[in-house]
Design a protein around this nucleic acid. Structure first.
Length: 486
RNA sequence: GGGCAGAUAGCUCAACGGUAGAGCAGGUGCCUUUUAAGCACUUGGUUCAGGGUUCGAAUCCCUGUCUGCCCA
């Protein structure tokens, strides 16, 4: 990071700008239209066919009167070759002033070298953008994790497998939208800046609107607005966009993350479980052509998640009982705290029995389940926005989809009774420091159709389907602390 | 928030108390099907920052910064 060294390398490259100018060539020229993707040229390769490509020079092998380089575009990379006969003496001499990292356009004919590498014989070429900085080592690439996140563009240039993950992410999102549109859902956009941050239990980011002079929160969930739309008469809505939670950062958590929420009037958690299963299977098949995905190495070595439907469903009571070896809900409080001790779960004084159950569940069930598994009928006080079970009022009609040791998606029979909803929210407000969204309750009082809802973390889904162990590897620009200025 | 690990040339890494090195990238030559091209010569460092110990510190100690992993 020495400034003197940096300026030495920079200085030499900047000198080359003068060279190009002396040759009457704009070092930041263009445009260069009508190019073909390199991948297409390679897959349908025909010798002696003329092609036109553009991309970044990744390597150069200058052999005097023979010049080889690799050019990388969005799709792939391909070798180019030039000699004085192919491009003419003047253009050839100029070509040899190119640096690794420069972006050029090339026209020429396809041929195979002695070693059968598919190559373009350059007939004409054009400098499109001069690179003033050296690329990372062509052989070792860029491995420094911090540099990969901070300078993601270098990561994308040097590491094709990283580029692939983000291609896949784009396809995953496209197929989710495609699937939901086909099912008759409409995509909506609701406020990301909210006067109250509701719809989940999480700490929001706070900001301020100058003109109105009011505090605003970045949303922690779109739920309460999407439900207003159900009241308004939209029957199938979804939103696929960013949520923000002002909490810790980890392998599984980024402060901003992408969430799908979908609501279907006249449905319930069972119909939504079916929809979700269908959706994920659709995405996996369309994008990856398989239903087998590697399990996180943190959970198990060399195992696969099998997404072949139907996926099993088990009540919370049952999975928790299996995990602790006795029926949790038959225990009194002292016994419950004893169980917590036994499994080394923190059981602070202020923790309710439900809190302890939640922690036990997360540690003993969620974190150990490969899945996919729908855990159904959660304790009511864990889920304030869901409908109570008719036969067992201490449980709610919900599921949590667990895959790969993580909660991937919850689904509810949405609570549409405004009076019960108020009671539940008031109880929650008592426990945490939140205000009640009166506007939401007002909407419910006009009547919300019974509905099923789901939420799915897109980052986690992408992690599963692309085999990434860290959420930072499926988010292009994960949040990092800024580097101190020197 | 706590524990562990890391930060050395543009990149990837050595050196572990005694003159900071290598490969690639860069520079100057030679070379008309190379491919981690090759050959010769060559430039490049506030060893993350600041203190301390020592005759002497990249190396040992302390503080801080940033990153990764684990735990809460």
């Amino acid at each position: 990071m020495s400034l003197t060294q940096e300026s030495e390398l920079l200085r030499l490259r900047k000198e080359k700008l003068n060279y190009w100018k002396s040759q009457a060539i704009d070092p930041f020229g263009g445009p260069y239209p009508d190019t073909q993707p390199i991948e297409a040229i390679i897959t349908t390769f025909v010798e002696n066919v003329s092609v036109r490509i553009a991309g970044r020079i990744l390597s150069i092998r200058d052999m005097g009167k023979s010049f080889f380089a690799h050019l990388q575009d969005q799709s792939a990379k391909m070798q180019i070759y030039a000699n004085p006969q192919s491009v003419g003496q003047e253009a050839f001499n100029q070509l040899k002033h190119l640096d690794i990292g420069d972006i050029i356009g090339v026209e020429g004919e396809c041929f195979l070298t002695k070693t059968k590498e598919k190559t373009v014989r350059v007939k004409s070429w054009q400098l499109l953008s001069k690179s003033l900085r050296p690329l990372p080592s062509k052989w070792h690439g860029l491995h420094d994790v911090e540099a990969r996140y901070r300078q993601r563009y270098l990561d994308l240039i040097m590491n094709p497998e990283v580029k692939k993950v983000f291609f896949n992410r784009s396809q995953i999102i496209k197929e989710i939208r495609h699937f939901l549109h086909q099912k008759g859902f409409i995509e909506v956009e609701t406020p990301m800046m909210q006067t109250l941050a509701g719809g989940a239990a999480a700490n929001p980011f706070k900001t301020f609107h100058e003109a109105l002079g009011i505090p605003l929160y970045l949303r922690i969930a779109p739920e309460l607005y999407l439900k207003r739309l159900l009241v308004g008469g939209f029957e199938k809505v979804f939103e696929l966009n960013r949520n923000f939670r002002n909490e810790g950062i980890s392998r599984k958590h980024n402060p901003e993350f992408t969430m799908l929420e979908a609501y279907c009037a006249y449905g319930d958690y069972r119909s939504m479980a079916k929809l979700l299963e269908e959706l994920i299977v659709h995405v996996a098949q369309c994008v990856f052509g398989t239903l087998q995905f590697p399990v996180s190495k943190h959970l198990a070595e060399n195992k696969m998640v099998d997404l072949t439907p139907p996926w099993p469903q088990k009540p919370f009571r049952e999975v928790l009982s299996e995990a602790i070896g006795k029926d949790w809900f038959a225990l009194d409080e002292a016994e419950k705290r004893k169980v917590a001790m036994e499994f080394e779960i923190e059981a602070k004084e202020e923790f309710t029995e439900s809190d302890i159950a939640r922690h036990l569940f997360e540690k003993l069930v969620e974190a150990r389940t490969i899945g996919p598994l729908f855990v159904t009928e959660l304790p009511a006080d864990l889920v304030p926005l869901a409908k109570q079970n008719k036969l067992k009022p201490e449980f709610v009609d919900v599921f949590e989809l667990i895959v790969n040791g993580q909660e991937l998606a919850p689904g509810y029979s949405e609570l549409n009774d405004p009076i019960v909803q108020r009671e539940r929210l008031e109880k929650q407000v008592g426990e945490e420091k939140q205000k009640i969204d009166e506007e939401f309750l007002l909407a419910l009082e006009y009547g919300m159709p019974p509905a099923g809802g789901i939420g799915m973390g897109i980052d986690r889904l992408t992690m599963l389907l692309t085999g990434q162990e860290s959420i930072r590897d499926v988010i292009l620009f994960p949040l990092l602390r800024p580097k101190e200025e020197k």
